[in-house]
């Protein structure tokens, strides 16, 4: 008998953290206490108070509102990135793993080349060619994420393609495509799910990193990374400016890590 997932303390804690973060993100799409781009000269770098629970930034904008909006941006970029990586990774991994042969060799060598670059560097090259902006970042990070998923899916498919139940499906006349995506793919889900969560974390961190470098989300839009980068000049005069976005990044990543951990140890 397996332990129920939610009885596992790590998974439970991860779920709680993640659901609170998701809830906040969701609220941020529709409602923020102040307009995140509304400047207010009288409140420049204000500390925490009842009106502004996380204080204000160097333009007097409410940090809590900007964190809510920033989480939304960060979250969307991360989801889009992982989606590109997972979908392309599953397709490539499934075909190369299932069929093997020279197609496998060619595609896997190309993927090895992509894998050899650090994802941030790859994204930098991309952005310098196509320009900055949210969508280019998503695209660039997405491509950088394909290899890791493709490899995982490929190795899973190699493991499963010679299983007896795949043989009997073939004997029953099931087509290769159906065997790949209806028979084998569901079996890879446990492994895939935990790597999706880890991938999501990497995406959040990469987005934060890129925005920090100034090539991600462009001002006046906020993302957690861009807020961190703006906050670094005021690290001592207004520590709350850096602390809150930083804590949010940590919590977002921590929640998903704990969930991935729980899934793996099942």
């Amino acid at each position: 008998m397996k332990k129920k997932l939610l009885n596992q303390p790590t998974f439970l804690l991860g779920t709680i953290i993640t659901s609170i973060m998701l809830l906040m993100t969701f609220i941020g799409f529709f409602y923020t206490p102040y307009d995140p781009t509304q400047m207010d000269n009288s409140n420049k770098l204000a500390g925490c108070s009842l009106e502004h629970i996380m204080g204000c930034d160097n333009f007097g904008r409410d940090i809590f509102s900007r964190v809510l909006q920033g989480m939304g941006n960060t979250f969307l970029i991360a989801v889009a990135t992982v989606t590109i990586g997972v979908v392309c990774g599953i397709l490539l991994g499934a075909f190369t793993g299932y069929f093997g042969g020279w197609i496998d060799e060619v595609i896997m060598r190309i993927i090895d080349v992509i894998f050899a670059f650090p994802s941030i560097l790859l994204a930098l090259v991309f952005v310098s060619i196509f320009g900055t902006g949210k969508y280019n970042v998503v695209f660039a990070l997405g491509i950088a994420f394909i290899p890791s998923f493709a490899r995982i899916v490929r190795s899973e498919f190699i493991k499963y393609k010679d299983m007896d139940y795949v043989k009997s499906a073939r004997l029953a006349g099931v087509s290769d495509l159906r065997i790949m995506f209806v028979h084998i793919l569901p079996n890879t889900m446990t492994v895939l799910l935990s790597s999706i969560m880890i991938g999501f974390n990497n995406a959040v961190l990469s987005e934060a990193g890129m925005s920090y470098l100034g090539i991600g989300v462009q001002p006046p839009d906020a993302s957690l990374g861009s807020m961190l980068s703006e906050a670094q000049s005021y690290l001592f005069s207004a520590p709350n400016y850096a602390i809150f976005p930083g804590v949010m990044i940590i919590l977002l990543v921590l929640g998903f890590s704990l969930m991935a951990d729980g899934l793996k140890s099942r």
Partner: peptide, 26 residues
Amino acid sequence: NPQMVFQDPYSSLNPAKRIGWILEEP
């Protein structure tokens, strides 16, 4: 369509699918 019954019943049924689904597949 000749068929085969395998030695190990633990690997000859897809663990991700319900029995009903497996039987309906052909």
